[in-house]
């Protein structure tokens, strides 16, 4: 046996074709370039989106002045393209949705990470994941069939408007904020909690004075992500908000936001018209708001790292 091993010692891999080494080395180099290429390609997309949507949108200013675009008068038939109502509307509806969702989400996150028994956690985690995955048109439909009639009854209007839109958005962003915040609280070092308990603090005092403050950057990230989702949501809001280009005076009043106005008008806007261009410009505004939220998240994360 000894001899047999010695014989094979030099040619155990000899049955491989001699070109094999060159072939696999070529494959290695080629794949390396393909991967770099993919990375470069993926990176290029966002810039081409900014470029294409931006240049199409900026054509609006050939017919409309900057001041007019940010005014509150949207009457395309009279060549008035003021998108101020929609920009304001986007922030109003998003703000209201955050006010409704954040307290629940943060309390829910604390509950899930620190208080809930294991079996409850096992239900809540997949449930929140599931709700991130439900299509927005389905949220819209539920808003349309439940919230709109209720709001209508309460306010004596048709029921379409700011309140049902904010309600449906709040439900949509709740799982996002909850799961990010839960993550932030769960990954806090256990020593923090122990130190607080060792000083005789109750669980509530520990949560309020130690855990939530320590997890604030993470919770903030969740809130900003939720805000991004709310401000960019189109279909669910479009189905319940009433789509009137007017500033709302009350919670039950119909209005329109950036996304919904685009959905409403784009299909009927001839390509290249001022109407179409101004809708592109509105989507550029939307894009820039979303991108600046990413920057804010990065700044928050950097602060946390320090």
């Amino acid at each position: 046996m000894d001899i047999a091993i010695k014989e094979t010692h030099d040619d155990r891999c000899a049955s491989a074709p001699p070109s094999w080494n060159n072939r696999r080395r070529r494959a290695d180099r080629m794949m390396h370039w393909l991967f770099i290429g993919s990375a470069a390609f993926v990176s290029l997309i966002i810039f081409s989106i900014i470029l294409f949507v931006g240049s199409q949108g900026l054509k609006t200013f050939a017919d409309v002045s900057v001041l007019q675009f940010f005014s509150l008068d949207w009457t395309p038939s009279e060549n008035k393209f003021g998108a101020g109502v929609f920009i304001l509307g986007s922030f109003i509806v998003t703000g209201l949705a955050l006010v409704l969702a954040v307290p629940f989400a943060v309390l829910g996150a604390v509950f899930m990470s620190k208080i809930a028994p294991n079996w409850m956690r096992e239900i809540m985690r997949p449930a929140t994941d599931l709700f991130v995955g439900i299509p927005s048109v389905v949220y819209g439909l539920v808003g349309l069939t439940t919230f709109v009639p209720i709001v209508g009854k309460l306010t004596g209007t048709a029921g379409f408007g700011v309140l049902p839109a904010a309600l449906i958005l709040a439900i949509m962003i709740l799982p996002t904020i909850l799961s990010v915040s839960e993550d932030a609280i769960r990954t806090l070092p256990g020593s923090l909690e122990e130190a607080s308990y060792a000083l005789g603090a109750t669980r509530w005092q520990t949560i309020r004075k130690v855990l939530i403050p320590a997890a604030t950057p993470g919770i903030l990230t969740g809130v900003i992500l939720g805000m991004g989702r709310a401000i960019g949501e189109a279909m669910a809001v479009q189905m319940v908000i009433g789509n009137a280009p007017l500033l709302p005076k009350g919670l039950g009043d119909p209005t329109s936001v950036l996304t919904t106005q685009i959905v409403k008008e784009m299909l009927n806007a001839p390509f290249g018209s001022t109407l179409s261009n101004s809708l592109f410009l509105m989507s550029l505004v939307l894009l820039l708001v979303s991108l600046s939220l990413i920057l804010i998240i990065r700044i928050v994360a950097r602060r946390r790292a320090v």
């Binding site: 046996m1 094979t8 155990r12 891999c13 049955s15 094999w20």
Partner: peptide, 23 residues
């Protein structure tokens, strides 16, 4: 190892696997 160095025949592989495990 043999596979990444270009050996594909099942018979060769079987032989190498047994020899190496014996060693």
């Amino acid at each position: 190892g043999p596979r990444i160095h270009g050996i594909k025949r099942k018979r060769d592989l079987d032989e190498i696997v047994e020899k190496s495990l014996r060693q």
